[in-house]
Design a binder for these strands. Sequence first.
DNA 1: TTGCCAAGTTGAGACTGTCTCAATATATTT
DNA 2: AAATATATTGAGACAGTCTCAACTTGGCAA
Lengths: 195, 195
Amino acid sequence: MTTVDPAPRRRMRADARRNYERLLAEAATIFAEHGVEASLEEIARRAGVANGTLYSHFPTRQALLEALLRDRMQALSDKARDLLDHPSADEALLIWARAAMAHTTVYRGLVTSLMRSIEDESSHLHAACQAVLTAGEQLLNRAQAAGSMRADVTASDLYALINSVSWVGEQTSPAQGERLLAFGIDGMRSATDSR
Amino acid sequence: MTTVDPAPRRRMRADARRNYERLLAEAATIFAEHGVEASLEEIARRAGVANGTLYSHFPTRQALLEALLRDRMQALSDKARDLLDHPSADEALLIWARAAMAHTTVYRGLVTSLMRSIEDESSHLHAACQAVLTAGEQLLNRAQAAGSMRADVTASDLYALINSVSWVGEQTSPAQGERLLAFGIDGMRSATDSR
DNA sequence: TTGCCAAGTTGAGACTGTCTCAATATATTT
DNA sequence: AAATATATTGAGACAGTCTCAACTTGGCAA
């Protein structure tokens, strides 16, 4: 497993820290408004810094996204761990899948970045996405052991399903995304399972 | 139903026709190479015309895409009609779904345009997408009448499923897309159906 | 408290791209 | 051979990405 610096290596200078925080705050607002493809120039402008400052803190859009999502993605992984104690393995998986879907759709266009990042090891988001995938895998394995999910379903299948239905939700309506999630999960259930 | 001019209203001037064809040919090449977000300037350049000429023939990227895909989308609708005669309603649906998936992935990024266009009535691609959806609906209805698909599955569900798995195929691998298609269709099958 | 310098910021500049429109050119008609 | 409707041209206005040499400034050591 590759280690990623979760916090800046050394203490930042006060002004740098201030700018870093302001950039993150503005990015959150602007991504929420215009999606993750929003103008980085605009973010710098609204944060009151030159665009070079933004690039020095966040070399790529993905790096900015990673900093912005770090806590949320950690929370999602933690939630999977907690759900391992849920009485129903099957229900736990569904609950988590829905939570993952909600996370994946906080910003328009985010799901595409997240899907790309699981494939691309050089992405700033890769490690976080991998952690989420692994967290989901635990829940999946438990559901498979309980006999409610097909044995041939992989963690990648689950990750792809969640992302694809989030993408649908983004392109059409959240309700349509939910419908496809239900169909997809049903298709992954063991044949003996009731519907 | 809104009518769309399938061919230019009047005969074009010889030079215009020539440029129109060259632009289409170059667009096919360049979209195949770089996806549907490729530079329109580059297409004009390679076609040997000024970019204004491209914009005069195709006011938007979607208009260009529509002209480029017209035959292919017509063929997909026709194929659905033909498959209504297939002995197995269930198999016919699966064959068509796979053909639709293949069509949807000819150019990188195309699936996103196609999905957007079904929602956006002002899109140049809307009518063609609507026709494909309706064609799929016939096959779906037949499979439902035959008892192999759940009665509550809609044509929109099918359209969304095909596009979402195409998107997955594009983002990760065609094989992963195929897997999700199988799970999704299975989830849409009637409970009584064998797997 | 001063002065130094590593750390941080700046913003112009080199790109690439979209889209428009007045001037210009050319195919077709009469 | 004009007249004219039809097309083409390409500069220009604009927006965005990303870089980097010149400049500032925060924080520490003397």
